[in-house]
Amino acid sequence: MIPHCQLPSHIATGPHVSPFVSHNEAGAPYGDHRSEDVHVPANPASVPFAVAPSTDKGEVAMGEPRKHTTTPYVTGNSVLAIKYKDGVLMACDMLGAYGSTKRYKSVQRIIRVNDTTIVGASGEISDFQYISNLLEELMTQDFCYDDGCTMTPSEIHAYLCRVMYNRRNKMDPLWNSLVVAGVDKNGKEGNKSFIGSVGMLGTSYTDSHVATSFGNYLSRPLFREFQRDDMSLEEAVSLMQEALRVLFYRDKTSINKFVLAKVDGEGVAISKPFALDTKWDFKAFMNPSKHAVGSW
């Protein structure tokens, strides 16, 4: 069993963090690098992580298919989410990777949508910024109606399914895997936790635990074994930390700078960035060539 560990105090009493403003502690999510030129290679096709040149309708040669984004540029990696007794937890690192370059290190990939819902994203960061704007517009509409109805996590999940599937059918997908998590307070039998996932093709499902990209292979086996819907917050947090640690060990496009978010009956709390203890001095690491003779 995974050892218990205390929830960091800033999570339990975490400040109310609005997704729509940049937080200085966390570093401006995207802003600080924006002005720098991005090197665009002469022949994009020859380089990984490049897109085809701009294809306005006029430029498409006869008989050529029209191309939109064919690869993403700046990407985020795994997002993890699990249910626990009082709600849901979600976690991911803060890396925005440019190909295999660890380009941006303060990217907030979990946003608060409303008092009951958070959304996390892996994949193209700019597409996620666009999705954030869509969700903000949706919440502003709720605010304007001022009629006591607010969107539930499952409604937001359904909405995002429609958006993603619609864009995919236009052959212009938003290059993301999204995780929607939250608590539905409208049910008769008390608060109900919700976790759902949407892929860039519009594939969607809900489950007690969800992970995107590498997390699917590295974290979900842990979740399958240890996650229970009735686990305590402490148990859930230490499970999450273990899953993040495993990810950081084995996924080269990840960094040791994470955020953890929780939603329960009280609302949404998104933690400040934190790092996990790691241990690299395993015996097998000491003299790698010893175990791989002739390779390196």
Partner: peptide, 12 residues
């Protein structure tokens, strides 16, 4: 219902 898989609030 198609977009949100939920009933439309009556007031709206």
């Amino acid at each position: 219902k198609f977009v949100y898989e939920s009933p439309l609030p009556v007031a709206r």
